[in-house]
Design a protein around this nucleic acid. Sequence first.
DNA 1: GTAGTTTCTTATTATACATCAATTTTTTTC
DNA 2: GAAAAAAATTGATGTATAATAAGAAACTAC
Lengths: 194, 194
Amino acid sequence: MDVQKSIISAIFKEIYFSEEEIVMIENKFEKISLKKKDVLLKIGDTVYSQYYISSGCLRTYFVDNLGKEHTVQFAVKDWWISDYTAFFSTSKAIMTIDCIQNASAYKVSKKDMESLYAKIPQLETFFRQKMEVAFAGFQKRIIGNLSQSTKEKYTSFISTYPNIEQSVKNYHIASYLGVTTETLSRIRKEIAQE
Amino acid sequence: MDVQKSIISAIFKEIYFSEEEIVMIENKFEKISLKKKDVLLKIGDTVYSQYYISSGCLRTYFVDNLGKEHTVQFAVKDWWISDYTAFFSTSKAIMTIDCIQNASAYKVSKKDMESLYAKIPQLETFFRQKMEVAFAGFQKRIIGNLSQSTKEKYTSFISTYPNIEQSVKNYHIASYLGVTTETLSRIRKEIAQE
DNA sequence: GTAGTTTCTTATTATACATCAATTTTTTTC
DNA sequence: GAAAAAAATTGATGTATAATAAGAAACTAC
């Protein structure tokens, strides 16, 4: 149990739980391992779970009607990932999640989350606050999308996610920023020359 | 009390509260009236509160370093509004909220929200779920931003928010979509000719 | 360590949208 | 209801970035 226990306290580091609660929580979490290119979730799958990433890197992307990929989210250590357009309503995924760097994750279902919330209110508070931080982050991302030049978007991406940069390809970043790889390449050249 | 009571049940329509709880909640909500062009919140203000809109229309916008306005959110009946980049952390606003159609709203502070959560767990559940819906909505908005043409963004805006369209100026919509008024005007012409 | 694949870069051309400027239409105000 | 102000439209021109194409560099695998 020691290993699991340390994971639960890694995931919920700010909270103190009783032994009993820890057991309840860890019973609902399932450890999974992913290799590069593994697909965690694909379009059309019913989304029952979300995933806590303890190592490696994954990304969520949307494929438009021209077949172009658009990266919506990256996840590295200590991030949560799922198709959140479907997870909260247990409906079908409109996005794909794949592994871009060998990863270790902990899977938990929405159903189990809800039952844990009912028994351990602190847990609901924890996730509400997580959502609040993410909510603020989304508003900032939208502000950035609306008001920044591509070059500014790239530099703020790099400074906001310095750890992610090492794990992902440039074309992943391009698809996150909403530009082509060619444009990103030119921007990187420009920055290098400064 | 009757009037307030009906408002509390309008805001939290899915929940049943005891008389006592309703009193506790309504004591924390303050009714405010806003006239067109009134500023609810401006850059630099410390954000203590969020607002439930019961009528009228408001918008949150960001002003970039060139002085250009970028609309981040509209709010009509039954929506909540604030500068959420600042509200959750009780920090300083980076955006402005103004009234674009005479409005009636209910103000509640973060401090009071937190104390209500502790006393009425259903309330925390209610807001957690609100956040989840909003979270899914943000992911969809980002997908739209990345994958749609301006024309598609405009038509999906109109179909997603048919009520808002009547309340807002075209240049507000343009600043929400991230295009100039001229471009929006041309797109509208194109659509009209189809 | 060579062959094959993937990723990144560079060049050319095409396009959607911004910018600037002027006019028309709509809304507000007294 | 006329005058003023605000908002929307239209036209001409400029610019950033997409699309296309090709080659170079960096990994991957046997």
